[in-house]
Computed example of a mutant assay.
Amino acid sequence: MGTMQKRANGTYTAKIRRKGFPSLSRTFPARSEAEAWMAAQEAAITARVTATQAIEDQQRIAAECAPQYRVFGDLMRRYLDEVTPSKRAASEEAVRLRGLLKHPLAACPLEGLSAARVAEWRNERMNRVSGATVNRDMNLLGHVIEIGRREWEVDFEVNPFQLVRRPPQGYSRERRLFPAEEAALMRACTVTQNPYVRPIIVLALETAMRRSEIVGLEWERVHLHEPSVQLTQTKTGRPRGVALSSRAVTALSALRLASGGEPKGHVFPGLTPNALKLAFRRAVERAGIADFRFHDLRHEATSRLFEKGLSIMEVASITGHQDVRMLRRYTHLQVSDLARKLG
């Protein structure tokens, strides 16, 4: 507020005091001049207050509004931060998403992410990986779009990944591990820097457990006296018990002894699925084995279970296949047994 004071010599002193601003005063020979100066100063202060308030309002509105997404990678990164960690296979999905973030598709503006652009990416991806891998990538990226549409107010009338043809899955891999290859692989494991690779390979061949199931194995669920393990975190989300062969028991007993006799927690502490994948790949290369992946150990183990004479339902109870039709690919292993039964 401004105030005016008439002095004894006939001049006028104008004063302005306002909270948050320094006090102002000036003396004029005429009252009209003092009033004009005071009005100008108050207008200037009011303008500064208004501008400051406008900036604060803009900042508040920006903080309250949903974040602005410009390219597909913006959605992928938010999905990686907020959605992926809640999944059972979070570490594996994180690796997959980070790899996809390096593809030019991640730099595509959202308004340009059309079915045609997705189809172009699919075709290019098919030149590098299998149809099954492309389908898994499309499932993941399609879910990124769905979460964006439903929860993050991203403006997509339709999901472009749902408009594009899926590549054929192709035939299931039939890669078996020959005895000479297994011996070479075990020898290669003796010089690896990771001491867990060899016992993990043994467990995979004896139990048909998945990589993530082995990495997540805990001593509290390993029962060597009643040779079995109880899996609580599985791909299907359903816990299951897995019987242990004598070879698997020997491998686990050696690990328990090396860990102090009564260990607790993870059987393979500090090991991640991706670290195991890389360590296994190095061991395979060192052994001179071509075209062999960690998941092929599960196929080999399942084949050996059938070769031991187990029924489809017995094998399914060990491998965790919810749909026994997935095991029909192994029925050729029982043809000779059927022939003997037919006489």
Rank of each mutant, 00 (worst) to 15 (best):
T3W: 05
R7H: 11
R7M: 13
Y12S: 12
I16N: 10
R17I: 07
R18W: 03
K19V: 11
T27C: 11
T27G: 12
P29R: 15
R31T: 06
E35W: 00
A36V: 08
Q41I: 08
A43S: 14
T46S: 15
R48M: 10
A51D: 11
A51Q: 14
A51R: 15
Q53D: 14
I55C: 10
D57H: 08
R60A: 15
I61E: 15
I61Y: 01
A62T: 08
A62G: 02
E64S: 11
A66I: 05
Y69A: 06
R70E: 14
F72V: 04
R77Q: 12
Y79A: 14
V83A: 04
E92C: 01
A94N: 00
V95K: 07
K102G: 05
A106F: 04
G112I: 01
G112C: 13
A115L: 01
A115T: 06
A116F: 02
A119I: 00
E124R: 09
R125T: 09
N127R: 13
A132N: 06
D137V: 08
G142T: 07
H143S: 07
I145G: 04
W152Y: 04
E153M: 12
D155K: 15
F156V: 06
V158W: 02
P160I: 10
V164N: 03
Q169C: 05
G170H: 14
Y171C: 03
R173D: 07
R173Y: 02
F178L: 14
L185Y: 07
A188Q: 09
T190H: 13
Q193R: 15
Y196L: 14
Y196A: 15
I201W: 05
V202W: 01
L203I: 05
R210Q: 10
R210Y: 07
E213Y: 07
E220D: 08
H223T: 12
L224P: 00
H225Q: 08
Q230H: 09
T232C: 08
K235M: 12
T236Q: 09
P239L: 05
V242G: 14
T250K: 11
A251K: 06
L255E: 08
S259M: 10
G261K: 05
V267E: 12
V267Y: 07
F268T: 03
G270N: 12
L271V: 13
L271E: 13
T272Y: 02
N274R: 06
L276R: 11
L278M: 13
R281P: 00
E285D: 12
G288F: 13
G288M: 10
A290D: 14
A290K: 12
F292C: 08
D296I: 03
D296P: 01
L297V: 08
A301C: 05
R304P: 00
F306H: 04
E307I: 01
L310R: 04
S311Q: 05
I312K: 05
V315Q: 08
S317Y: 00
G320W: 02
G320Y: 03
Q322G: 12
Q322C: 05
V324K: 06
R325E: 09
R329N: 13
Y330F: 04
D337E: 11
